[in-house]
C-alpha cells in the first residue's frame, strides 16, 4: 500500500462528512471522509494511504477530469505480468505504486522515464495515521 507523508492544509465539514485538503510534495491532495480521525487538525502531519489498484495513470491528458487528485510523476520501473502491470513511480522523493491492466499499459505505450499524471479519487484516499497526536 502506498504511504504518502502529507500535511493538513484545510478541513471542510457538513455534519459528519468532511473534505480534507493536504499538501503532498507541493501538490494539493483532497480526501473525502466521515468523522475526522482522532487528533486531526489543520497543520497535522499525516501518512495518507492509497491502494495501488486505486491509482490510475494519465499520459498526455487533455480535457477536464473530475479526479480531485492529479499528481505529476515519473515512471521508475514497470513490471508486466500476464494480466496486470505493476508500475512504480516517483513523486518528488516518494515512491508510489500503481496496478493497471497490462492492456492499458501497452495501449498507452508506457515506458520507464515517462512523465505521467497519477489520478486518485478523493474517496479512495485515506488517512493511514495521524503522526503528531
Amino acid at each position: 500500500m502506498n504511504k504518502l507523508p502529507a500535511i493538513v492544509t484545510a478541513i471542510e465539514g457538513e455534519q459528519n462528512l468532511h473534505i480534507i485538503a493536504f499538501d503532498f510534495q507541493g501538490a494539493t491532495l483532497k480526501m473525502m471522509g466521515l468523522d475526522l480521525p482522532k487528533g486531526l487538525h489543520v497543520g497535522s502531519h499525516v501518512v495518507l494511504g492509497v491502494k495501488p489498484s486505486h491509482i490510475a495513470i494519465g499520459k498526455n491528458i487533455s480535457g477536464d477530469l473530475s479526479y480531485s487528485n492529479q499528481i505529476p510523476a515519473t515512471i521508475q520501473t514497470l513490471e508486466n505480468g500476464a494480466l496486470l502491470s505493476s508500475i512504480v513511480l516517483h513523486v518528488g522523493d516518494t515512491k508510489v505504486q500503481s496496478f493497471i491492466t497490462c492492456s492499458s499499459s501497452k495501449r498507452m505505450n508506457l515506458q520507464v522515464g515517462d512523465k505521467v499524471i497519477l489520478l486518485i479519487k478523493a474517496s479512495d484516499l485515506f488517512v493511514q495515521e495521524v503522526l503528531d497526536v
Binding site: M31, G33, L34, P37, F126, V127, Q128, E129
Partner: peptide, 15 residues
Amino acid sequence: GDAKSVLLKTQGSQK
C-alpha cells in the same frame, strides 16, 4: 461515551 464513539472501530479515516 455514546455507542458510536465507543464501539466504532476505526483505523485513521477508515470506518
